[in-house]
Design a protein around this nucleic acid. Structure first.
Lengths: 350, 350
DNA sequence: CTGTTAGCGCTTTCAT
DNA sequence: ATGAAAGCGCTAACAG
């Protein structure tokens, strides 16, 4: 393996000079610099980042620990992170936590052991975040609000997004609107449920507690929750589902049972899915600005690394309701009105 | 930062003993070991993997450089890699090459500089593979066969899979079968096209050269290629698309133009897509054993690391044709036979 | 079984 | 502007 000493010998300078050329911090004589560069080429020299990291006591790697690489939500998020990281001179390594606490723990341990420069994590709980911050690791939480820890966080307006989606179903004339949400311990599940409840109350409806199901944010869970709702004494005529994978499961269940969407049951999901436009009926969703979420998280991490003492902050980004087919009854279908004041044509008439 | 020397001092032993306890290679007195472990806990000691790597001249990190994190093909592939890696004591970091040569180059450089233990890469060309192997890095190529380099490789039977898919369309009575394939420089695109051609010849058909389009393996490219095919003097009544994203694009184009699938145009894609069952019509695909591909690649890498001198080998896994709706005409539809004996109605009439 | 010692390759004072 | 020298934290001979 060629080292800076090999380069130094060939270029007839000292190792320090080679190092200076390599890093460009202090200035060196142009002639010497040229000789050094030539020697590097001749020897096919490759800097050893491990040695550099050991000496400098820091690396230029970020760990991005996401909960499910299979969830398209994370795809463009990662792209947003990468773009900012690159501008700031960091490389991003992705770690697939896979919603598995052991795996997550292993990756956190690795990030700590490898002395990575920072961590962006979509946390399943506060424990790992604490381990990281206590070890002095710069951390940004993304997507989920860890409970009771002061950490930079990037979120979307979950409550508001859920309100909008639910209000849209109300306006569409659906009367018995269910909600399939995620685990109680995950902030997004709680907040999206709250938005659903607030929207119903705001419309003067009562919240039908028997129309709420807690599932696991996975496709299967969404399927089972939907089946359970359909088995109720008084089944729903619409459902708001709080993440993309569960929405897929719910739709599948409806298709399997022959329940027509959106005529007999309207559906709105949180999180877009790719090819939402190809699914029949195409899915109405609350879309998140995933790329910008990634950029925001990366920016926070950059600042945190530059200034470890600064106070933790939370950035909240806005969602967008994308109305497609699954939540809009075709004209002429029977359906009620949002509130009792209005008679006449239903709002969705067309 | 606490080091083994701090631990050694508290445990009243030498640093070597701490190191031995840490690594478990040689044996130490149980009493001393217990004291060391206690001291580690007391001090909240965290081993420094950077220093260890420098000393040992190797790390326990694998870089997995994939061409598109957004392509679901890679999701379970990565899971297969991770599972094997963990058994072998390695951690996997994912690098999103994003079909961008610059990005790929940066990640290869980083893997080299960080002295990672090995690299699994889905290569866009032979150049980067060469850089890696020349630097002595253990490498496994996945999904694509790099041209003219001796490197461990994991592939699927692209030719055979494409033959099966095309033969299925032939058997279904489609008469004018088109093919949308990927860039000529990518082996999978070439091989899948070849399978298509061979299947047609085997069925006694001529290969309609004007029914072949080269696109870019992306959704947009598939859309445009399909549009181009539909604009032909004599449009196709079926199409075989050589990857999942382009299949989505092609279907979208057909939907937009009101071409009924599978009645007026049958579709089979290579690569499964998630939620293929939700798309209407559901997509017939040539499914790859993605998880096993990952496992196979990881096994090859483990062997290569253990024995750098061994000859390079190629593992080929089998694909499975999954027939769903998009390639099967409903009963009662007119449709021809695989060979020309029957005249009568054109296949696409309806 | 345990301790002493010498680096792994690099950066960074500190002199010059 | 350049070089000499120390040391980041750890492991692996080697000697005892």
């Amino acid at each position: 393996m060629t080292t800076i000493y090999d380069v130094a010998r060939v270029a007839e300078v000292s190792a320090s000079t080679v190092s200076r050329v390599l890093n460009g911090h202090s200035s060196v004589d142009p002639d010497l610099a040229a000789r050094v560069r030539q020697a590097m080429l001749d020897l096919d020299y490759r800097p050893n980042a491990v040695a550099r990291s050991l000496r400098r006591q820091r690396t230029s790697l970020w760990a991005v620990i996401i909960s499910d690489i299979g969830n398209p939500f994370f795809t463009s998020l990662v792209r947003g992170i990468e773009d900012v990281a690159q501008e700031a001179g960091f490389s991003v390594v992705l770690c697939n936590g896979d919603e598995d606490p052991d795996k997550e723990t292993r990756y956190v341990t690795a990030a700590l052991a490898e002395r990575m420069a920072g961590v962006i994590i979509s946390p399943s709980g506060p424990a790992l975040i604490n381990r990281l911050t206590e070890a002095g690791m710069p951390v940004v939480a993304i997507d989920r609000q860890p409970h009771g820890v002061a950490v930079d966080t990037v979120l979307v307006d979950n409550v508001h997004g859920a309100e909008t989606a639910t209000a849209h179903l109300v306006d569409g004339g659906y009367r018995r609107i269910a909600c399939i949400t995620g685990p109680r311990r995950i902030s997004t599940a709680v907040q999206r449920l709250r938005g659903y409840q607030q929207a119903l109350r705001a419309a003067g409806r009562s919240v039908p507690e028997d129309m709420v199901r807690y599932a696991d944010f996975r496709e299967d869970g969404g399927y089972r929750a939907m089946a359970s709702l359909l088995g109720a004494a008084e089944p729903p005529d619409a459902v708001f589902v709080t993440n993309n994978l569960m929405t897929v499961g719910a739709i599948k269940c409806l298709v399997d049972r022959g329940v027509a969407v959106p005529a007999r049951c309207g559906v709105v999901g949180f999180d877009d899915i790719p090819w939402a436009h190809l699914v029949r009926p195409s899915l109405s969703t609350v879309a998140q600005p995933t790329y910008d979420l990634g950029r925001a998280a990366a920016s926070l991490l950059t600042e945190r690394i530059a200034n470890p003492a600064k106070a933790a902050s939370t950035v909240t980004l806005r969602t967008t309701l994308r109305v497609r087919e699954s939540s809009v009854r075709p004209p002429g279908e029977p359906g009620g009105q949002p509130t009792a004041e209005r008679g006449g044509l239903p709002a969705r008439a067309r």
